[in-house]
């Protein structure tokens, strides 16, 4: 997204978004035998050669990098499905197509570490980039249509990375309209104490909050 954004307002760093995505379950085909893993994050395995097994993405990538398995690309990550999604994205300017919440992080991790397990990997990647672009553009346009005091925005099917990137802009836009439309508060200070100048404090509470 063009323009500056306060990374603090994004809340999650890109590596934190990726960290959360790494818990998504994917299917692997091991080429080794390994006993069950009873981990804090869950129980997985036992693993047998050529028998598919479901594990979190971080575990799948770790095994793949050590040459112990192949990763089965998720069924949404095919040229056919992604072409459908891209067409649908282009045809509906106000809706987002359903995609896994972490589709961006999942595809990135698979491209980085398991490219050979993805059929037509480069075409798949290019389709995903196009989908991202179309969706970002939709979010930007959507922001422009917020023209008054809005109390709720529905962003059906927006993904994790997209949420994180749009967050600062969205919050700032909504907050700005919210503030400007609310009635000004004029406080009458009730004066007591020895320093009793009959002075009224005008305006909303002052505070030391940094802008």
């Amino acid at each position: 997204m063009a323009g500056q954004s306060d990374p603090h307002l994004s809340l999650f760093s890109p590596s934190e978004v990726e960290f959360v995505a790494e818990d998504e379950i994917v299917e692997i085909v091991p080429n080794i035998r390994m006993e069950a893993l009873n981990m804090i994050c869950g129980d997985f395995g036992p693993f047998f050669p050529q028998i598919p097994s479901k594990v979190p993405l971080w575990l799948a990538v770790a095994l793949k990098r050590r040459g112990k398995c192949t990763i089965r690309a998720p069924e949404w990550m095919t040229v056919e499905r992604l072409t459908q999604v891209l067409d649908a994205e282009r045809e509906s300017p106000r809706e987002f197509q359903p995609l896994p919440f972490h589709y961006i992080e999942i595809s990135k991790l698979l491209f980085d570490h398991a490219r050979d397990d993805i059929t037509d990997a480069y075409l798949v990647r290019s389709l995903i980039e196009d989908i991202r672009d179309v969706r970002f553009h939709k979010v930007e346009t959507g922001l422009e249509t917020i023209s008054g005091r809005t109390h709720a925005v529905k962003l059906k099917n927006l993904s994790a990375m997209e949420v994180n990137i749009v967050r600062p802009f969205m919050v700032r836009t909504l907050q700005a309209f919210y503030k400007h439309d609310s009635p000004q508060m004029i406080q009458q200070a009730d004066n007591t104490g020895s320093r009793s100048t009959p002075v009224t404090d005008r305006g909303p509470r002052r505070d030391l909050r940094r802008r």
Partner: peptide, 25 residues
């Protein structure tokens, strides 16, 4: 009466009070 009088001295005092407050903030 300090509480109710509104002459130039009152407003002068008010300005000093508010300026002090602003400096403090």
């Amino acid at each position: 009466d300090i509480e109710t009088t509104r002459n130039e001295d009152h407003y002068g005092a008010a300005i000093h009070h508010l300026s002090l407050l602003r400096n403090k903030r």
